[in-house]
Amino acid sequence: MANGFSLDFEKPIVDLERQIESLRRMAADRELDVESEITPLVAKLADLRREIYRGLTPLQRVQVARHPRRPYSLDYINRIFTDFVELKGDRLFRDDPAIVAGWARLDAQPIIVIGQQKGRDTKENLQRNFGMPHPEGYRKALRLMRMAERFRAPVITLIDTPGAYPGLGAEERGQAEAIARNLEEMAALRTSVIAAVIGEGGSGGALGLGLADRVLMMENAIYSVISPEGCAAILWKDASQKERAAEALRLTAQDLHELGIIDEIVPEPPGGAHTDPDGAANTLAACLESHLGELADVEPEERVRQRAEKYRKIGRIVEG
């Protein structure tokens, strides 16, 4: 992490990392043994990471969730699954590179995996539209979910999007209809569905892949009805009030767990998933497997009933 992007509050971590690195380099140059000096520093680094990440404010979590070095869907797919064969296109208009999807195996079991995919650099971001899907992306996802149902394979979705794309073509081709249809069809899907929010859960665009039997969230992921910036701009006419909005919206994994909307928080390595993508992928894989196992024995009718029941209960009202 010494090279590349870091967040403000990560600075003490980055400084210490640099210190360790230069010590190592110096030792190598002069052929000295500095392990006895480095070991306590490495321990201190681990403590520092843990400490800083334990006390993150909601807005800092938003920053981590959007971290440009955070593992994206394909990073997880390549680490967690084998035999991945990407399938493209909605068979109606075109392929949407903001969503990647296909067959893969999770510990030998065939599944359909579908994930929103951000770009790692400017060029890839332009191609993938910063992970903001068009209607054809949602329609491709639906096509593959139906295929999963046909071949009795579970569906795993990975959610990581600022939101569904608000543009001319997206509206012309029915962004609202595409998401609405996915929600209705996912509610009735006879195969099991697990959704994992791995980064940004941006409103309806996230939910369009997110109606599931089980919803998991990475520890530093966020899930919200609106971005903190958007919320602040509407409520207080001032996007710089995003800190206030991030707190009010209750968008962290902890918040969503307390509100009963997600089923499990997937712990991230200390310092966030971007510091140890392999570690993050291992934990996520274990979580996915255990939930798949629990869902496997449920009859399709019962599964659909339970799913509907679960969502039917969400909401807080006062009556009488």
Partner: peptide
């Protein structure tokens, strides 16, 4: 938005009843 993600989930809830 004042109901945060609870309001977002109403989309899922209403869609599930419409499916039924």
């Amino acid at each position: 938005m004042q109901e945060g993600v609870l309001s977002l989930m109403q989309m899922a809830k209403t869609s599930a009843v419409m499916a039924r």
